[in-house]
Amino acid sequence: MKRLIPLTSVLVLALCASSPALAQNGNGNGHGKGHGAGNPVQQDRDDDGDDDRREGRRNGNGRENRAERDVPRNHRSAEVRVREIVGDPPREGERAVRELRRGLERGESVVGREVIGPRRDEVRALLQGCPPGLAKKDNGCLPPGQARKIDRSQSYDRYNYLWRSFGGDGGYQYRDGYLYRTAPDGGLLGYLPVLGGILSTGNVWPTQYTYQQPPQYYSRYYGLNDRYQYRYSDGVLYGVDPKTQAIAQVAALLTGQQIDVGQRMPAGYDVYNIPYDYRDQYVDSADRHYRYSDGYVYQVDPTTRLVQAVIQLLT
């Protein structure tokens, strides 16, 4: 019978050094409380140190096992995040490596979920009605009593195709900071705040809008500013002033894809794209490929395309 067990730090080191494929992220930070208007995908920042517990720790006993010796020295600058594995508790590193390799070959040795951000379709769930301060009028949302600004609308409308990839029936129209989705008959279905619109530096974060606190690891990887509270939504990492709730920084663009050990690497990672500073450490070979996304390196089986490891990059 399968059992879920956390790896000890010693095992983590052995696994990291010998094969990043055998380790993966911790239990995610999907245990947060809601923010804003009760959207279920919003989560609190994981400030309880849980993130650190998930990360591999170096063996402190001063001894170096074979797995450590086999790995290039600069490889050790990267942490491999470990979550849970299926199998018996290992007694020594090498045995664990062998067992986990067998398990990986069976496709059953690693479970869990890497939470980077809410899925796009969750984030893009339309907010109902009209944005604050606007009233529904003529199948749109306008400031009360204000006539539609024809010139600006026409100018905007020329580029509504830029949001075509959001999909769904009907269309999208941008107006004054928000993206409105309309039904094929022209009726208003809802709206979304968008980057560069209401989600621009200096603007107050819309209270109704979904976001998630990014993993603590991002603070180190992206060098985030302690003064701001960081929020992830729809592929963008924003820094928000906690006092004013104003967006102070657009910190990073992310794919926002949740890629987990054991799952098939999603489409769109066919080309080797490892950051230059890490290319000596993560080199494609016949039995493993490496791909980068959103601050992590993913080790992928070239044949099955299954993700074998999620690797943090220390700065």
Binding site: Y159, L162, G196, D270, V271, Y276, R291, Y292, S293
Partner: peptide
């Protein structure tokens, strides 16, 4: 007035990681 449109256009032209022409050709 077109900041949002510019951001949307740019995001469609950006991919994660370092992608050289040699990498693309190898792939």
């Amino acid at each position: 007035a077109m900041k949002a449109q510019g951001a949307a256009l740019l995001r469609a032209h950006i991919v994660p990681g370092a992608l050289t022409r040699a990498d693309i050709l190898a792939a």
